[in-house]
Write a protein that binds this DNA or RNA. Structure first.
Length: 462
RNA sequence: GUCCCCAUCGUCUAGAGGCCUAGGACACCUCCCUUUCACGGAGGCGACCGGGGUUCGAAUCCCCGUGGGGACGCCA
């Protein structure tokens, strides 16, 4: 059987971390099995769906490199097909008109809740053998409901959670078409998964409760039932549910914040899935290794520290060209223009092992291209009066030195010896004067890159 | 309320009845490297939710608690 998976977001907001992982797993499963990955936009909620959100989802997937083989399909463009299926179901008797008003249903629900019952439709318009239906009211446009089986159980072997079984008694006759005739989510999903030949439905576990209803409809339509894999949710770093109000951000925000897509992908892959003790793997490796058997059924908490660690790793691995491009872009945002000297590639090389994010990296090298902001605390600690003459002497020496890290180091050593100091006693004030702060790579290497003129200027100005 | 799901270090996880004195990774701590801070290297701290079963043997299987989460829309 040829594997066909799909990612089916509703375009009501950006692609967030949970959606991204669902997409990633669906995508990887298809890749692993040489199958087809389909993108389907579930935009039947006309009021909340926007073209901007569609674009945001497309952007997010592109940034992560999750390419789809078919689609994007838009459900709103498949209306005719849905209506045709509904017509057929009405004919065959697996669906029926219901003339309850919203108010009537609200009252019913409230009543059931009060009695401690599970709120559900009581089937008052459900046609039954030997049952006389009320006369349809003229003023209420009917909805269409699916005639769910009354007895027995719906069971499936969830590829993540194992055997799940739900009594049909727990299920009511859900609405498959609104009063205005537009079909609803659960129905469209069924038709699409069926007609698009989806073999594995990989989605968030908030859909577990929809699955038995969908299976029943699939059965009523005589369709093949796909396999289901329900992924548990991703919690925020504080263990709380992610929501628009609380911590849920677009995957594009990670780009904004200086994360490489490889890092985000690798992080997401390991969140809820594992391959023994492996922590770092390429996208290709992931596709080869990925399986549904090693997905945890329990919810996972997002951990920025670990993402940072992975990001630091991928920054070290990144090509010089990638990093240079990113640095130009990110320095520009800091209003720093990169000049020809010091050489950006050399600067990056000196700093890339020290940053967790691209933004950190950009901020840390900014002083090469603009005057540093001197940290006051560092200045007070290191730029002491007694060191001034030593630095002055060093400046003298530097004027004539061959401008190489080694020679510069030699010059510093000379004054260190002359004044009988420890090396850091001189290196630290230099750091503060040249970079603004007390932490930097080897000061001689920094100086070599900064250039003689700039070094002397900064020393004089400090 | 009803139904469904989940439960191993702080976090992500390994674990398919004996390989478990429970492994790895992040974080944290110590030491080494060192020109400061990082990087890197070596160590350390740290968990099977509770109670019953089943079994010669349970982190693993079953039951009951407890805790957490999800669903119960003319949203998706």
């Amino acid at each position: 059987m040829i594997v066909r998976t799909r990612f089916a977001p509703s375009p009501t907001g950006f692609l967030h971390i949970g959606g991204a992982r669902t997409a990633l797993f669906s995508w990887a499963f298809a890749k692993k099995h040489g199958g087809t990955f389909i993108l389907r936009i579930e935009d039947t909620d006309v009021a909340r769906s926007t073209p901007e959100a569609v674009q945001a989802i497309l952007d997010g997937m592109q940034w992560l490199g999750l390419d789809y083989d078919e689609g994007p399909f838009y459900q709103m463009q498949r209306m005719d097909r849905y209506k045709e299926v509904i017509r057929k179901m009405l004919q065959e008797g697996s669906a029926y008109y219901c003339y309850c008003s919203k108010e009537e249903l609200d009252a019913l629900r409230e009543n059931q809740m009060q009695q401690g019952l599970k709120p559900r439709y009581d089937g008052r318009w459900r046609p039954e053998e030997g049952k006389t239906l009320p006369e349809p009211p003229q003023d209420i446009p009917p909805v269409i409901r699916f005639k769910n089986p009354k007895d027995g159980h719906v069971s499936w072997n969830d590829l993540v959670k194992g055997e799940i079984s739900i009594a049909n008694q727990e299920l009511d006759d859900l609405i498959i078409a609104r009063a205005d005739g537009t079909p609803t989510y659960n129905f469209c999903v069924v038709v699409d998964d069926w007609e698009m030949g989806i073999t594995q439905v990989i989605r968030g576990d908030d859909h577990v409760n929809n699955t038995p209803r969908q299976i029943n409809m699939l059965k009523a339509l005589g369709a093949t039932i796909p396999q289901y894999a329900h992924l548990s949710m991703i919690l925020g770093g504080d263990g709380q549910k992610l929501s628009k109000r609380h911590g849920a951000v677009s995957v594009m925000q990670y780009d904004e914040d200086g994360y490489l897509p490889e890092a985000v992908l690798n992080y997401l892959a390991r969140l809820g899935w594992s391959h023994g003790d492996d922590e770092i793997f390429s996208k290709q490796q992931f596709c080869e290794w990925f399986d549904l058997d090693h997905i945890t059924p329990s919810a996972a908490q997002f951990n920025t520290d670990k993402l940072n660690w992975l990001n630091a790793h991928y920054i070290k691995q990144a090509s010089p060209e990638t990093l240079a491009r990113e640095m130009k872009k990110r320095l520009a945002k800091l209003h720093v223009a990169v000049s020809a000297q010091p050489d950006l590639f050399a600067v990056i090389d000196l700093y890339k092992e020290r940053a967790n994010t691209l933004n950190e990296l950009a901020a840390s090298i900014a002083y090469f291209y603009q005057k540093p902001v001197i940290d006051q605390a560092a200045a007070e600690k290191h730029l002491t009066a007694d060191i001034k003459p030593v630095i002055a002497k060093l400046a003298d020496l530097l004027g004539a030195v061959d401008w190489q890290a080694e020679a510069i180091h030699h010059a510093i050593n000379e004054v260190v010896t002359q004044y009988q100091l420890k090396f850091p006693k001189v290196a630290m004030p230099l750091r503060v004067m040249l970079t603004g702060i007390a932490q930097s790579p080897s000061i001689d290497q920094v100086m070599a890159l900064l250039g003689r003129d700039e070094v002397l200027t900064r020393i004089n100005q400090a």
